[in-house]
Amino acid sequence: MRRLWIGLTYAVFGLLIVIPLARIAVGAWAEGWGGLSAAILRPHALHALGMTGLIVLIVTVLNTLFGVMLAIYLARASWLGDRLRRLVNSLVDLPFAVSPVIGGLMIVLLLGPQSVLGAFFGSLGIEIVYALPAMVLATLFITFPLMVREVLPVLQELGTQQEEAASTLGAYSWYTFWQVTWPSIRWGVIYGVVLTVARSMGEFGAVLIVSGNIMNKTQTATTLVYQDVENFNLLAANAVALVLAAVSIALLLLMEWAKTRRGH
């Protein structure tokens, strides 16, 4: 019985994850190192990877800052009031319920060329939709809950006593945060960062809609993979996908390492 279950588990993992991953790697190597490097070094591929990197950077920084602060307010702030706090807490998860395509659509509707805001920014010469700002906004929206959901439980479990102790010893909030709270939530924040990086790197649907997928301008790594598949250029798709998969796996390993570190 035990053998059967373990065997089945291996089979599922093999079929669903390991074999397809291996096929991506093999597909990318179909024409050897030359083919792989040529696919990745295409100017628009490099531009797309750079775009993805830029979005990941901006989104991770912003959502880390605001996510951690919102988590702190949700866990601690008395000025929010109990009802409002519960409301905000349940609203934080909204992006989890929203299809990325719908997330992108929202931004097109609000800021697209036909919308009031979009027309206003357009008259100022600022492009939002089909340009970087909308792509960043879409990714911010999709990834916002990740940090809050990692940090909030840690803060709740931590309780307020250590912070109260610091205040009776004369420390004000800023000092207390860095000396007392931060060391305890650090690993939660690191998880949150890893998840945010992974998700913002991989975001596809929302970005596809708001970016217009314009080569050398708004194309990202994931939308490039999509385009290469649509153009039956499987070798190139595999090559870019391999880069993305490698980063994902590296992030996963980082996460595992962080888990064992936190255990100590």
């Binding site: 006593q161 250590q162 109260e164 102790a165 610091a166 009776t168 010893l169 004000y172 060391p183 305890s184």
Partner: peptide
């Protein structure tokens, strides 16, 4: 007055030691 300015010492029930 906030606790910082009261000149008190407080020993918590579960001690609330800074664990790190």
């Amino acid at each position: 007055l906030p606790p910082q300015e009261r000149g008190i010492g407080f020993v918590f029930q579960n001690y609330a030691l800074f664990k790190h």
